[in-house]
Every structure is written in C-alpha cells, then in structure tokens.
C-alpha cells in the first residue's frame, strides 16, 4: 500500500480575537495519496482557508496550531524555517484566489518566474529564462517570450492566474494547494483555468487540494470531497459517492440552495435558514443543529464525530444521517 503524501492528525487552529478565542479549525483529520485530488468545500468562515494555511505552514503568527501535519513523512510544524523554505516550491506549492495580490506588482513576470527557478532549482539565468518561456506556453499564455517583460497589471485576471499557476508548477511540486483559484474570474475563464489545473495535475502526477465554495467546481474535478462547516469536516467521501448518496443534512442543503440550470424560472430555492454559529462561541452539540431540519435535543447537546459506521467509504458527522438519495431531498 502506498503511503499518504499528506496526513493531518487532529489538527486545530485557534486565533485570539478581542471577543475571545476563535477556533477556526476544529480537530480535522485528513489524508491525501500522491497524485490524487481532494476538494474542500464550505462557505465563508468555515475554516477552509485556515486549514490550507495550516497545511502550508502559512498561518498568521498569533495563530495556535495543534495536532500534526505530516507531509512525506515529516511533521511540518516541527520543521525549522529553513527546511520549510526549501520544501516550498519543489514539494509544496500554492495558488491563491487573487492573482493580483499574490504576484509582486513591481517585478516583471519574467523576474518572478526566473527568480523562483534560480532559488529552488539552482538554474543559471539563461536556462531559467528558457524554462520560463516553456512554462508560460504550457499554461496557455500566447506570445510567452514577450510576456516575460510585462508587469502583472498589464495582464488580464485570467492571464495573471495562469502566471501564478506557472510559478506554482515551476519546481514540479508534489502537492499543489489551490485556494479558490477561479473565484475572482469570469465563468468562461474559470472553465479554462480548471481545465488547465486538471491537465497539468495528470501530466505531473501531482496531488492537489482544491478549495472552493462551489460544489459545481469540485463535482467533475476531484477524487474525493470534504465538506467543512464551522471549522470541522462534516462529511468526506469519494466524489461520485458523495453526490449520489449525501449523508450529512448540511451537504444536502448546500446543494439544494444552488440555483439549478434545469429548474424553471421563479422556482423558490430551498434556502438554509439562519447562518453559521459565531466561531468564538462554540456550541456544545452539532454546529449545524440550529439550522438543521432534522435536529433534535441529542444533536444540540452532543457533538457527532466524523465516522464511517457502515464502512461504505464515506465519512459523516451526524446523529441522523440521510438515508434517501440526495435527488429526492427538499
């Protein structure tokens, strides 16, 4: 059996705030095999970005991380800064949501790519420049040699995100974390960028974590999906299984709330009433219970653990899991 490339054991992230401690990530366990894609889905504030920062060891200074983040057998939290720096690029890479803030506005595209290749792979200037042109061509940028001399503001949002992807892929990482990589882009450009990520991932046998708020984005493009709510993973299953047989009422409600292209106009949407709980005031029971239509007293008082009691390969954290296929839902 292959060893997991990444495994998270009981990871929690706490942030001090004026209102008290905010538990952004709450006892998360995850593992990812080499070359596989995991989708992490959730709404704003569910902790998905903090979880990705914990994996990348890019948490804010005041954040407190507990648990273990193992990557290729090493515990990342225990690594000294220098070893961590060497890991980023050739092993671990990231693509953020907004390419305008992740690229340096006062350096040319070429400088940023060449610098990465020189620093991590020890290439000389000429070889790095040649490789940069190849990389830009591979991510679908027309006239790549000219682009090297341009600054980020001279490119469109889609082109900037392609550059950010080229930089992330430049050192052939084993794991790419893509945090809402297409949220800032138009829908036709989004489709192109998701295609590009999928193609490069297959070609390079790279593992990928795709973080998004959009169930539509993970549906056709991941092997496994983890759904997060209020800092916890509430459901995790192979993608096809998750969509065919949702067990957690939150996942079902999230899917039902998306307007569907095949419903007629003016169809009322099954909205989820209320909003997520205040993360500085954790609830004793299931965090979704105040908004869940199946919740009872037990749900409000005891926290369900993420488990797979039926050994179906799908994990969920719910006292009253759904038994019907999702399509028959509300």
């Amino acid at each position: 059996m292959t060893r997991a490339l990444l495994s998270l054991e009981d990871v929690s992230v706490e942030l001090p705030t004026p209102r008290g401690t905010l538990r952004a990530v709450d006892n998360v366990d995850l593992s990812l095999m080499p070359g596989r894609t995991l989708g992490i889905v959730g709404e704003s504030g569910c902790g998905k970005t903090m979880l990705s920062r914990a994996i990348l060891q890019l948490l804010p200074k005041r954040a407190k991380l507990s648990g273990r983040v193992r990557f290729g057998g090493r515990d990342l939290a225990a690594l000294p800064a220098e070893s961590l720096r060497r890991l980023r690029g050739p092993e671990l890479a990231v693509v953020f949501q907004d390419p305008m803030t992740s690229l340096n506005p006062v350096l040319t595209i070429g400088t940023q790519l060449i610098e990465t290749l020189q620093a991590h792979l020890g290439m000389d200037g000429a070889a790095a420049a040649r490789r940069s042109v190849d990389l830009l061509a591979a991510v679908g940028i027309p006239a790549p040699a000219q682009r090297l001399r341009q600054y980020p503001h001279q490119l469109s949002g889609g082109m900037r995100q392609r550059v950010a992807i080229a930089i992330a892929l430049s050192c052939e990482p084993k794991l790419l974390v893509a945090d809402e990589p297409t949220t800032a882009l138009d829908v036709t450009v989004q489709a192109q960028i998701l295609d590009l990520l999928a193609r490069e991932q297959r070609r390079r046998q790279m593992a990928m974590i795709l973080i998004t708020h959009d169930l539509g984005v993970v549906a056709g493009r991941t092997d496994e999906v983890a759904v997060m709510y209020a800092g916890r993973i509430v459901e995790r299953a192979p993608t096809a299984q998750l969509f065919a047989r949702m067990r957690m009422p939150y996942t079902e409600a999230l899917l039902a709330a998306i307007p569907k292209l095949d419903s007629p106009p003016h169809t009322a949407l099954p909205a989820i009433a209320g909003r997520p709980p205040d993360p500085t005031r954790p609830l004793p029971g299931c965090s979704f219970s105040p908004r869940c239509r199946y919740a009872d007293d037990h749900c409000r008082h005891a926290k369900p653990m993420l488990a797979d009691p039926e050994r179906s390969g799908g994990l969920y954290a719910c006292w009253h899991p759904l038994t019907l296929p999702a399509a028959v839902g509300p």
Binding site: A191, Q192, G220, R221
Partner: peptide, 16 residues
C-alpha cells in the same frame, strides 16, 4: 457550457 454543474456524472466541458 462553461457553468460548473454540481453533478459528478456530468463531465465538465473541455476545450472551452
């Protein structure tokens, strides 16, 4: 064609 559909049985459009 470009809209991501929340259904894994629908293959995402390629070559948009």
């Amino acid at each position: 064609e470009a809209i991501p559909v929340p259904d894994p049985t629908v293959m995402p459009a390629t070559n948009i």
